[in-house]
Amino acid sequence: MTFDAYAPTWCPGCGDWGIRIGIKTALEQAGYNPSSVLLSFDIGCSGNMNDFLNGYALHTLHGRAIPTLVGAKMVQHKTKAIVVGGDGGIYGEGGNHFVHACRGNHDMTVIVHDNMVYGLTTGQVAPTAKKGYKSKSTPRGIIENPINPLALAIISGATFVAQGFAGDVRQLVEIMKQAMNHKGFSLVNVLQPCVTFNKVNTYAYYMTKTYKLDVKYDPSDRKKALTKAMEPFEEKFPLGVLYNVKAQTYHEQWPQIEKNMLIENKRFASFSDITKKFV
């Protein structure tokens, strides 16, 4: 039993290939197998990984990969939980859930394929695209400014925020391993070219605009992390772990599941203790 399922159907050269290898390698190296993980896939080219990566999985609705996994995680909090989605599902349609999952420091790793377009629906603009980006749905360019996922995660309460590049799988594996190892909400925003629909943010674009964080960089300082997280506004994309701190996770603050997983608890049957309150 391996993580390998169907052969992927992504376009040749798509960043999704590298991201999948990154996730799979990180999971394998950390000792997981398909029976020991809860995966939650969003809808889109990224979410189509549901058939390419084995596991106990939810292939959810568009935008809802996070809240669906939040529920599953409350019931089986000892199981490793991973969300795979795109910039549209996680930051657009599911933006509200993303912010609130950060706030809760829910113990899960959210891996976002950030290619600044909607690939599966043939190339409309995504919320991470630069202002002015022209697409089928925005022929004269997008009016809104882009979402800044890194800054948004940090100010919302995420305790691990990292950025990777689909063109550098070796670094991606290391980042993902750290993210999966982290207790609490971890975001890995992966910059990824869409070779079919995005002619601006290409491999060549990222080769010149990305840089790796210095080995001496201290990810425990929130203000410094925020400063780094602002750089994409100037088209500078730091790669590596921007922010990493320890904090109580969401499930750790529920006495009901302090010892056992919710599913392992005994059935409550002291009904008269409840009915007497209504007498």
Binding site: T68, V70, M74, N96
Partner: peptide
Amino acid sequence: QYQTGMVVRHPEDEISVVNSAIGAAFAGA
């Protein structure tokens, strides 16, 4: 809930409410 052991949550919106319940049911509760 601290008596019954049930987990009772007030999420960010009804969409999160219902999807989290589906997740919980998938996980066996």
